[in-house]
Structures are given as C-alpha cells and as structure tokens.
Simulated assay, not measured.
Amino acid sequence: MADKPHTLRGRTDAHESHTVRLAVNAVKAGDHQAFGALVALFDRRIFNLCVAVLKQPERAEEIAQDAFVKAYANIARYDPARPFYPWMATIAVRLAQTELRKRQREREKNEDYHAEQSLEPHLTGETPLSTLLANEQATTVWDMVSALPAAQRTATYLFYRDDMTLAETALALGVTEGTVKTLLFRARAKLREQLSETSEERETQ
C-alpha cells in the first residue's frame, strides 16, 4: 500500500512526548494527581473517538471516562517507548466495542437482527478518496463515514483521522491487520459509491 498522506494526528510530537513521560513517571512514583495531565492532553481526542464508535455523545462521554480510569489502573503496563495515544485509544475502543456488543444483544432480544456477512476483498493502494479522508475539513465525507457500520466506521477513524498504522488499528480493534484491510476496503467502496451518487444527483439538478 502506498504511503498515507502525512498528518500529525495520532502521533505524539516532542512536547507531547515530554509531557506524557513526566506524567507517567510521576504517577508510577505515587503522584496520582499527575494523571490529570494525561487526561487534559488526550480527553478531547478520546471522547471524539468514542463518539465515532458509539454515535451517542452522552454514552461516549461515560466510556471515555471509563477508559481513563482503566488506563490509570493499568499505567504500569504502558510502555513509555511507544506513543501514548494508540495505547489509550486501544483501551477506549475495546470498551466502546463492549458497549456496542451489549447494545446489539439488547437489540436482538427485540427484533430479528442479523449481522452483515463479511467479505474478503484486499485493500488496494491509495486513491483520491484517501486524501479526502485525511482532510478532516471534508465534512461531507466524514458525515458519510459516521453512517458506516460500526467496525468500518471505527477503523476509518483510527486509520485516517487519528493516523494510526494498520498494526495499531488492528490492536485497537482486537483483530488482524488483514481484517483491518478488509474493513477499510469495504468502507472506501461504500464511500465511493455514495460520493458517486451525490455527484450524479448534483448533475441532474
């Protein structure tokens, strides 16, 4: 796959890395209040990620808070040699996935709900669509992303908006890199279809 358009999202810059390192070391040394620096640094991004997965801001806020609580409880497991955000995002996504599974079980009790069968296409190289996805100002495209099935939606947000690698996205989702490729392929195919339909509608007006 071709290189992704370069962005800074999902990556810790020097200042961010320094803040994370100081805060983590302080928490491990017993300064529990130091964790507040990590919350202040990442709370908005984690909340937005939870909203992207759950599509319910109120519940997303609760899940984001739970994610920070869990991160605090497991701070000793964090490897300071790695970026903090992907580690934090993995915790948040897995909690959000648990919430989605709970929601699905509740829905299945009330209606005959069947999950869509998985396909096995292969992810191709970068396209102009990926450039649009890398631009968070592409409001129309991101509105379409928000309507994708949960797994596709989450993979797209992590890979394109938060600039996480395939490996990091797979770890966050708890799936293989091949599954991430499939999710991204299906998401991009659906977005292309919708963009094409939107374009045709404009031409006929």
Results as ranks from 00 to 15, higher is better:
Leu158Gln: 07
Ala26Trp: 02
Gly178Ile: 02
Leu38Gln: 02
Leu38Trp: 03
Thr198Phe: 15
Ser199Arg: 10
Lys28Arg: 15
Leu129Gly: 03
Leu184Pro: 04
Glu61His: 11
Lys190Met: 15
Tyr72Pro: 04
Ala187Asn: 05
Ala167Lys: 00
Ile75Ala: 05
Glu116Asp: 07
Asp112Ala: 12
Thr182Leu: 02
Arg77Glu: 11
Thr98Arg: 15
Pro149Gly: 06
Val93Phe: 07
Ala14Glu: 08
Gln104Ala: 15
Lys28His: 09
Pro128Gln: 06
Val20Phe: 04
Ala23Glu: 00
Val24Ile: 05
Val53Ile: 11
Gln104Ser: 15
Ala60Pro: 08
Gln104Asn: 15
Ala115His: 10
Arg11Asn: 10
Glu61Tyr: 10
Ala138Leu: 04
Glu58Met: 07
Arg45Gly: 09
Ala138Gly: 05
Thr7Arg: 14
Leu173Arg: 00
Pro86Arg: 09
Glu136Thr: 12
Leu184Glu: 04
Ala14Lys: 08
Met164Val: 03
Ala81Leu: 08
Arg161Gln: 08
Thr12Trp: 13
Leu148Asp: 14
Ala73Trp: 07
Thr140Glu: 12
His15Met: 07
Leu195Pro: 08
Val39Arg: 06
Arg186Phe: 08
Pro128Met: 07
Thr204Trp: 09
Val20Arg: 04
Arg188Gly: 07
Arg105Leu: 15
Glu58Pro: 01
Thr131Leu: 14
Phe42Pro: 01
Glu168Gly: 00
Gln137Tyr: 06
Asp43Gln: 04
Ile46Thr: 01
Ala26Gly: 02
Val141Lys: 03
Leu123Gln: 14
Ile63Glu: 06
Ala29His: 03
Ala81Arg: 08
Leu132Asp: 09
Arg9Asp: 05
Pro86Leu: 14
Ala71Gln: 11
Tyr72Gln: 02
Arg186Trp: 10
Arg45Ile: 02
Gln117Lys: 14
Thr204Asn: 09
Asp66Tyr: 07
Gly10Trp: 13
Gln152Ser: 08
Cys50Arg: 02
Thr12Pro: 14
Lys4Tyr: 07
Trp142His: 07
Trp142Ile: 13
Ala147Gly: 07
Glu116His: 05
Glu116Trp: 10
Pro86Met: 13
Gln194Gly: 10
Ala170Cys: 02
Trp87Arg: 13
Asp162Tyr: 12
Gln117Asp: 03
Arg188Lys: 05
Thr90Trp: 01
Thr154Gln: 13
Ala67Gln: 10
Tyr157Arg: 11
Pro5Ala: 12
Leu133Asp: 09
Glu168Asp: 03
Leu100Thr: 13
Val180Asn: 00
Thr154Phe: 14
Leu148Trp: 10
Val145Met: 04
Val20Cys: 06
Tyr85Val: 06
Gly30Leu: 03
Glu201Leu: 15
Val175Lys: 00
His15Ser: 12
Asn25Ser: 02
Tyr85Gln: 15
Ala52His: 00
Val20Ser: 02
Ala155Pro: 09
Pro149Ala: 11
Asn74Pro: 01
Asp66Val: 09
